[in-house]
């Protein structure tokens, strides 16, 4: 593995007295596709939320693309990151949310162009052109003028993916992208993510409950339990021959449900 693009170094995240991430060490290589699986409350989503700067950390250091995420250098020392530093770091990442979180008062097209124009300073024409390309890629080229509520959940999530990609991130974070979807709509979203994984050298970090999917797209699978990586390895190792008792129990419970 080359230099990791994401690195967690003894990271601790607490909500009041509850420790959600417990001295986590975790690395993701450039272009690597990593899935995080594990029981609910194990801190899977929190890892993504820390990266997207939605949740601050209490201890440890997170590195993204060679820079500290939650800290910045000052007078030879280190201080908590200011908003300017966080904004610079956020540019490297895009996030897809479980609840889509599209802007309901904007058309699909404006959902995709608003941030590139207003944040990245892209010209309107360029942003629109790029939006068309992305919508085409997620199979929604004809839906640009609709509002989110006029789309199905699966379509909304595909817009969510396109919206994140419109910011040209190096790293894509997927937070249970299909958990809020009706079962028959899961496939269309997964196939978009799968294509993205196969055709682009994006670094991808996915939290998911779709084990079959995790098996197919990941270079590496991490099993989270109580704020730590309990076990990690290639999909073959984790799904074929898990070593930890906790992993086996989890997979057994999940796969029986499928």
């Amino acid at each position: 593995m080359t230099d990791p693009i994401i690195k967690f170094d003894k990271v601790v995240k607490r909500f009041d007295t509850l420790t959600v991430i417990d001295e986590l060490d975790f690395e993701v290589g450039q272009g690597e596709k990593v899935t995080i699986i594990g029981p609910s409350g194990s801190g899977k989503s929190t890892v993504l939320r820390i990266l997207m700067t939605l949740e601050p950390i209490q201890e440890g250091v997170v590195y993204v693309d060679g820079d500290m995420l939650w800290h910045e250098k000052a007078n030879g020392g280190v201080k908590p990151a200011g908003e300017a530093h966080l904004r610079r770091m956020r540019e490297k990442m895009g996030m897809v949310f479980q609840q889509f979180n599209l802007f309901p008062h904007m058309t699909v097209r404006r959902n995709l162009t608003e941030a590139p124009v207003k944040v990245l300073g892209m010209s309107k024409a360029e942003a629109r052109e790029r939006a068309e390309e992305l919508l085409d890629m997620v199979g929604l080229a004809d839906q640009a003028d609709k509002f989110p509520h006029q789309l199905s959940g699966g379509q909304q999530q595909r817009v969510g993916i396109a919206r994140a990609l419109a910011m040209r991130p190096k790293i894509m974070l997927f937070d249970e992208p299909t958990s809020a979807l009706d079962p028959e709509l899961v496939g269309e979203v997964l196939s978009v993510i799968r294509r993205l994984a196969e055709e682009h050298d994006l670094t991808m970090l996915l939290v998911t409950h779709e084990m079959q999917f995790a098996r197919q797209v990941s270079d590496r699978v991490c099993f989270f339990d109580r704020g730590k990586i309990k076990e990690q390895g290639t999909p073959e190792e984790i799904f074929g021959n898990p070593k930890e008792e906790r992993t086996r129990a989890f997979l057994k419970a999940v796969l029986e449900g499928e």
């Binding site: 939605l54 990442m93 608003e114 207003k118 944040v119």
Partner: peptide
Amino acid sequence: AKGQHEAARALNFKSLRTFTH
């Protein structure tokens, strides 16, 4: 919804723009 704020943050909107837009 809280998710709207999070999406705006993930897309790197400044807080004033998040508020107005």
